[in-house]
Design a binder for these strands. Structure first.
Lengths: 153, 153
DNA sequence: GGTGAAATCCTTCCCTT
DNA sequence: AAGGGAAGGATTTCACC
């Protein structure tokens, strides 16, 4: 789907605050709210907008620790290994990557004990992996929701 | 702030779809929409809900490549190094981590040429870093927005 | 936590350019 | 093909119980 500057302006607003009323979006981009509604519908249908999510403070719901985990997968075990990984509680992202690790995942745990149980109790015992490294996130210096949206193409 | 089961139910719904009308949230948790509104306001003010964001397909806005980048920071240069990093276009997350890398960041780029320019043109030339590794994301096997929200505590 | 009412917003249809 | 006006029905919001 081809996007124009108006579409990108809408995306920028909704990525920043997904609950902005269409009437206000309309005001800001100087169009009617019917048009905004129309464009948003098209963007949703085309898969440009995948969904709308509340961003929740992990600490408030009991997650005190997050980590990035690198994994080496044994040849031929890729599919089953990934299928089992996504069942592990706390795993929120699983990426296939180049470099030292075949898989990089992002996990959340209540505390370090929980994280240890997750890594040594669950993942270390799985077939299909032969090495891992846990990079505990000590702090986040910067985190912006979503992707940068260029003002034109 | 102390959360109860009702709060967590609301959070789960809004994390999944931030534009769910409060009237429907109310229906699902069997309360009035005024109460939902009241609770959501308190969750926002307490910082439990940090915001609402549209999830946008990176490919649709021109980002064909994403990567995780590990960096080693020279002692004593931490603050300035991080300050400069967050100015780099395409950088969306910067985490301080234990393990082989001091900093792990997530970047988006148009294509591999763009990513190379970002890494070799911009970051490699900066003071304060002495080693890096770029883990290009070849694919994402699983990605769930936000954090798991337990049904009780 | 709920009710009720006013203000606002969403949505659709239809008309215009 | 794209945008705007208008109108209904739904939703948000706020004062008060």
């Amino acid at each position: 789907m081809e996007l124009d500057d108006t579409d990108r302006a809408i995306l920028r607003i909704l990525q920043e605050d997904a609950r902005t009323p269409f009437s206000e979006v309309a005001r800001r981009i100087d169009m009617s709210s019917a048009t905004v509604h129309d464009r948003v519908s098209r963007l949703e249908e085309a898969g440009v907008i995948r969904g709308y999510h509340a961003e929740i403070d992990p600490g408030s719901v009991g997650y005190g620790v997050s980590a990035l985990v690198g994994l080496r997968v044994q040849q031929g075990h890729e599919d089953e290994a990934l299928a089992r990984l996504r069942e592990v509680d706390g795993v929120r992202e699983i990426h296939l990557t180049t470099g030292e690790w075949d898989v990089m995942m992002r996990v959340y745990a209540e505390n370090t004990d929980d994280l240890r149980e997750l890594m040594f109790g669950q993942i270390a015992g799985m077939d299909g992996f032969d090495r891992s490294q846990t990079m505990v996130i000590l702090g986040t210096a910067y985190e912006e929701a979503g992707v940068p949206i260029p003002s034109h193409r």
